[in-house]
């Protein structure tokens, strides 16, 4: 357990170091002077020089990196250039929205993919299965932005089923709130459904050939009981792995989805901040995204152990 935590922790720490370093590297790539983006057309050269030193742009990159890391370790990610507010506060405001979006879409994807995989697992040649196989690959091949545009266009625009007019917070009431997240979550979920479905189904196919499941059949357990009670849990490992691995692409998808559907989450924050050359904010968001990835994967590791007693942490 301790050994596991140590190696895992070390690995994930390495991820964070690389990510934070990358974020720093990006700023060095920045062409032009970020101060003009902030001060606009009519600022005086003196004001620009002042801002330049305020932002620490006159320091060398290495010492800037270390002072940033030192502050970040204490939870201080600096002050946003374009808004003048603490980056940590802004991120804490946005992170829950993105996490909620990701959470709903993963939940939705699991709610669709797991029953679908379980119910088709023991009939690999049935027509439902073939349709599911082809459509899942098609879904995997469909870029999330196309899915978003089509869903917004057809479900939102042509059918008028859902509100595509931006995000409503919880304080706007749970109904409108969930409604404003519905289409984005469905869009994100669809790609995941296909991925989860394929993984879980192939695992289930393997599990169903195991002796203990064949034996279970001779003991007269019904099909549903065998699938759900006996076969599902031992088959979850790959699904969990995929869940951990795809969190990266899911976050990437969230960036696009948030900008299509106007969700004020971390993704949109990142795009806006990078367009505004607010590199302090960009750095903070990048770090938090890395952190999210790390936390999710740690959780997945613990889930492995929870689902399979053979695995010891």
């Amino acid at each position: 357990m301790i050994g596991f935590l140590a190696t895992r922790g070390l690995r994930l720490f390495a991820v964070l170091v690389v990510v934070s370093f990358l974020a720093q590297l990006l700023i060095e790539l920045l062409p032009g002077d970020p101060t003009t983006a902030i001060l606009g057309l009519q600022a005086s050269p003196e004001a620009r020089a002042q801002l330049h030193s305020d932002l620490g742009l006159d320091q060398d990159p290495v010492s800037r990196y270390f002072s940033w890391v030192a502050a970040a370790a204490q939870g201080d990610l600096g002050t946003s250039i374009s808004w003048g507010t603490p980056v940590t506060d802004t991120i804490l405001e946005r992170l829950p929205i993105t996490l909620e979006l990701l959470g709903w879409s993963i939940l939705l994807a699991l709610l669709i993919a797991v029953p679908l995989a379980v119910l088709t697992a023991d009939r690999p040649n049935a027509w439902t299965n073939r349709i599911a196989a082809v459509s899942s690959l098609t879904l995997i091949s469909t870029p999330v932005f196309i899915l978003g545009v089509l869903l917004a266009g057809v479900v939102g625009l042509k059918l008028g089923w859902v509100d595509v007019s931006g995000y409503v917070g919880w304080d706007g009431g749970p109904g409108p709130h969930l409604q404003s997240l519905a289409l984005p979550a469905v869009t994100l979920a669809l790609g995941q459904v296909a991925m989860y479905y394929r993984m879980l189904q192939s695992d289930l196919l393997r599990t169903l050939r195991e002796d203990y499941l064949l034996l279970a059949r001779t003991r007269g357990f019904g099909r549903q009981r065998i699938l759900w009670v006996h076969a599902l849990r031992p088959s979850l490992t790959s699904l969990l792995t995929v869940l951990g691995l795809t969190i990266g692409s899911l976050i990437g998808g969230a960036v696009i989805i948030e900008s299509i559907f106007g969700i004020p989450g971390l993704g949109r924050l990142l795009i806006n901040a990078s367009l505004a050359r607010d590199f302090v904010m960009v750095q903070g968001v990048v770090l938090v995204i890395g952190l999210t990835y790390v936390v999710v994967n740690l959780t997945v590791d613990f889930l492995y152990a929870a689902f399979d007693p053979r695995i010891r942490l």
Binding site: G248, S249, L270
Partner: peptide, 11 residues
């Protein structure tokens, strides 16, 4: 580990 689309977008 890091979402590659995010990196590409930033760069």
């Amino acid at each position: 580990a890091f979402p590659s689309l995010v990196v590409a977008l930033l760069v």
